[in-house]
Amino acid sequence: MNAESNNPQRPGVMSINLIQQLIDNYRQNHLSAINNTLGIEDAHSIWFDLPKLKKFIAMIEEEANRINPDTTEEDLGIRLYYASYPKIENWNIMESHPVPKEYAEKHTLVMVPTLKKENEAGDLLDYDFNSLEANGEKIALALNARRPMLPDDGAGDNPGLGENNGTLIPPSPPMGESY
C-alpha cells in the first residue's frame, strides 16, 4: 500500500494530496466536459448537515431492524447515486421534494440504504432496499431486483428511503471549501 492510499486500519482518513488530486481530476475532466457540453455551471460539491445524515442513518437502522431484528450494523450501508435535477421546464416533478429552482440541471447525489444479502452463488452483496408503505401496502425489499415493484398510487410518487436535500455549490457560494 502506498502513502497516497486510504488506510483500511483508519477509515475516514485520507491524504490531503490524494483528496486534492481526485477533486482536481473531476473538475478538469468531468465537470469541464459537462459545463462545456450543457452550457451550464454545474455543481462541484454538495453539503449535508450532520444531523440530517445521522437522522437518515437512524431511519435506515430502524427500518432494517423492523423488517429483521437480527440485522446488524455490518449488514447496512448507503449507496450514493449520481443524479441531476430536471430542466426548469420540467420542474413540476420536484413538487413533492422542494429544492431551489437554481438547482435545475445541476448534479446532485441521492443516498439509498443497502442491506447485505447472500445471492444464489453464496456471495454477500449489498442490495438497495426500501421498506416504507405505499397505499397501505408494504413495499417489498428491492433485493435481487433492479428496482422494487411498487404499487401505483396514481401520481407515480411512492415513498422510499432516500436522502437528497443537500446544499449545492454552486449556486450556493463556495465559502468554507478547502478543495
Rank of each mutant, 00 (worst) to 15 (best):
M1V: 04
N2V: 00
N2E: 00
N2L: 00
S5G: 07
N7W: 02
P11Y: 13
V13R: 08
V13W: 08
S15M: 13
S15W: 09
S15D: 14
I19W: 01
Q20Y: 06
L22G: 05
L22D: 00
I23F: 05
N25D: 01
R27H: 11
N29V: 10
N29K: 06
H30D: 05
S32G: 13
I34D: 15
I34G: 14
N36Q: 13
T37R: 14
E41C: 03
D42L: 06
S45T: 07
I46S: 01
W47S: 07
L53A: 11
I57T: 06
A64D: 09
R66T: 14
N68H: 01
P69K: 10
D70M: 07
D70K: 06
T71V: 10
T72V: 06
T72Y: 06
E74Y: 05
L76K: 11
G77L: 06
I78G: 00
I78M: 07
L80M: 09
L80G: 09
S84W: 15
E89N: 12
N90E: 06
W91I: 09
N92V: 15
I93L: 11
I93S: 15
H97Q: 06
K101T: 07
E102D: 07
A104M: 03
K106D: 00
K106C: 02
H107R: 12
L109S: 02
M111G: 05
V112R: 06
P113W: 11
P113A: 13
L115N: 02
E118V: 10
N119L: 10
E120F: 09
G122D: 00
G122A: 05
D123E: 10
D123H: 09
L124A: 09
L125N: 11
D126H: 13
Y127P: 09
Y127G: 09
Y127D: 10
D128A: 14
N130A: 00
L132M: 07
E133S: 12
K138Y: 02
A140D: 12
R147C: 01
P148M: 02
P148I: 01
P148Q: 01
M149F: 14
G156N: 08
D157A: 12
N158G: 03
P159E: 08
L161I: 03
G162E: 07
N164C: 08
N164Q: 14
G166L: 01
T167I: 13
L168A: 03
I169Y: 02
P170Q: 15
P171D: 11
P171A: 11
S172K: 05
P174L: 08
M175Q: 15
M175G: 12
M175T: 14
S178P: 11
